[in-house]
Design a protein around this nucleic acid. Structure first.
Lengths: 345, 345
DNA sequence: GATATTATATGAATCGATTCACCGTGTCAA
DNA sequence: TTGACACGGTGAATCGATTCATATAATATC
């Protein structure tokens, strides 16, 4: 690998001049510029990014810290982030935490040593006050939180309007004649889960339907819990007429439960899911879902982060971008119940 | 951010001694070691990884270059690679190429400038002889190819036995009574696609069924082409009794086509897919698939790469790891055809 | 007691870029 | 003619670590 010195020697100029030609920071005469460019070409010289980073104090590297890329919500987020990053000359490094706080903190420590320029993070449910996030920001490395924000943290964020998503979905179920709508929720400490439940409550209240705590079951956003809770709910008397799973994987679990009980969807029980489900428009039952703009979440977040890095944002106050989810109605909820089809308490 | 110098000053030792304490490369007396450790703690010192990389000539960073993380095959691969990487103290940077060769080459150039220690790559279909891969290896950066290998390239690889996967799947279809089995294939220049077709041919030959080129249609591994080709095939006279889609997204396209034609699967036409399909065991039709050990592909590949980096591999010759796919039989192929149900010529 | 050996510790050189104080030359106005 | 100024160009200092030749002290050997 040739160095800038060798280029300088070959072009019979100083290293400073070579640097100027490359970065374009200072004017260089036509003659020398020509010589330098030729030397670069002939030596097939590429500047060493490590050395550059050492002096210039930035690495042009971003990190994205998520729970698990295997969760179908994240690939699009990561793709969006990578597109925004590479468009601006940044690299994206990826980390899975499995929602374990100690792993998350450890990763943050590594990121500091690595002098990563900025961090995108989906904080783990139990990250409480998010001191590691605050520390990172305090040490001069901007952070953007995706999807969730640690309580009381002063940090940029890109969120989806979870309240609204759940609300329009439940409103739809009510329109279809459902009154006994059960919810398969996520961990109580997750704001995401709480907001979705909140949307559910609001939709019920609008329709004058009493809220029943017995219809809201807490899972852990994983397949197994969706499966188990759906089974429980389907065996309840009276059985709910509709199930609303608050994320994709639990929705799939619920789907499996319904099948195993030989119930049909939506005839015996309707099912709606928060989150896109892969193949939801191809397989049966075609699921009604609340679709989140996952790609946009990643893209906008990385973009916001880069704006911070390049001081394009005047305000020191946290910026919060809230994106709109979209209700996609499919077969799993489109059987209209007549009023007397509603089971009575 | 404190530097090694400040630590040295605070502990009243030389920077060399601090470095020795941290890296453990040389013996340090108990007294000084104690002082240094205390200084590190009190200053909350973390070594600067950039400076370290500049001198030590390695970055502890790996790259994974794939076509699109959004393709359901890749998240598990990436997860496996990240697990292996982080276990060994490496970071993983991710790149999407959308199978565009010029983007791939550009990324390789960036990776060289960044002094990435090693590269995992799923080469793009038209990467021909893979000169960029060869160049990278020649310049001292090891590369492991996943899933596909550029023709004639001398490079480590982790592959799945595509011939075998297709063969056992088609064998299964034949066992179920199918004789007119159509294939929705991928781009001819992709070895992956060719190998799967080869497996199909072998299974036919074993069973003494003549191969008919008309039954093998070439798609591009995307949803649309799977959809279109499946529609064509379903409208053929006589209609094939089974469809075998050679990747996941085309399989989903085929599924949609079958539904739109109001055919039922497997009664009217059976469907098997190469690749896992998300939700294949939950939704209807429950698809028979050839499941690839995607996580293991990523994990083993990163592991192999790290072994190369740490000179744990004696042989200079390329290592090739071939993993076994697994046939998962589900409802979409399990209707047994009686012999006289087989359409004739 | 002199010398060889071992164990520690030091600090300057190095990695490959950027940056900036400084210098030479030419142009222009006074 | 001279001073001011712009323009090009130079090369040493710098970033923060590692590494190695060298120095010193302590111990072992004869």
């Amino acid at each position: 690998m040739p160095t800038i010195k060798e280029v300088a020697r070959k072009a019979r100029v100083s290293v400073g001049t070579v640097s100027n030609v490359i970065s374009g920071t200072a004017a260089v005469g036509a003659e020398l510029r020509e010589r330098v460019e030729r030397a670069i070409r002939e030596l097939n010289y590429h500047p060493d990014h490590i050395a550059r980073s050492l002096k210039s104090r930035h690495t042009n590297t971003l990190a994205i810290v998520i729970s698990d890329i295997t969760n179908p919500f994240f690939p699009l987020v990561v793709r969006g982030a990578e597109d925004a990053a590479s468009k601006n000359g940044y690299l994206l490094t990826i980390f899975n935490t499995d929602d374990r706080l100690e792993r998350e903190s450890q990763i943050f420590s590594v990121l500091r040593m690595r002098r990563v320029d900025g961090v995108l993070v989906v904080v783990s449910p139990n990250s409480a006050d998010g001191t590691h996030v605050q520390d990172m920001i305090a040490s001069g490395t901007p952070v953007v939180c995706l999807d969730r924000v640690p309580l009381g943290a002063e940090v940029d964020s890109v969120l989806v309007d979870n309240v609204k998503g759940a609300r329009i979905c439940v409103r739809h179920l009510i329109t279809m004649g459902h009154r006994r709508i059960a919810v398969i929720s996520g961990p109580r400490q997750l704001q995401t889960a709480r907001n979705r439940v909140e949307g559910y409550r609001l939709a019920l209240r609008e329709a004058g339907i009493p809220y029943s705590a017995a219809l809201v079951r807490e899972g852990d956003f994983r397949f197994e819990s969706g499966y188990r809770l759906a089974k429980d709910l389907c065996l309840d008397h009276p059985r709910p007429t509709a199930l609303f799973a608050l994320n994709c994987t639990m929705g799939m679990g619920a789907c499996k439960a319904i099948q195993e009980l030989a119930l049909s969807c939506p005839e015996d029980i309707a099912l709606a899911v928060f989150d896109d489900v892969p193949g939801a428009d191809v397989f049966r039952p075609k699921l009604t879902v609340v679709s989140q703009p996952a790609y946009e979440v990643g893209y906008r977040a990385a973009d916001l982060l880069i704006q911070r890095l390049t001081n394009q944002i005047a305000s020191a106050k946290p910026v919060s971008i809230v994106l709109e989810p979209e209700l996609i109605i499919r077969e799993s909820t489109t059987l209209r119940l007549s009023v007397d089809a509603i089971p009575r308490g």
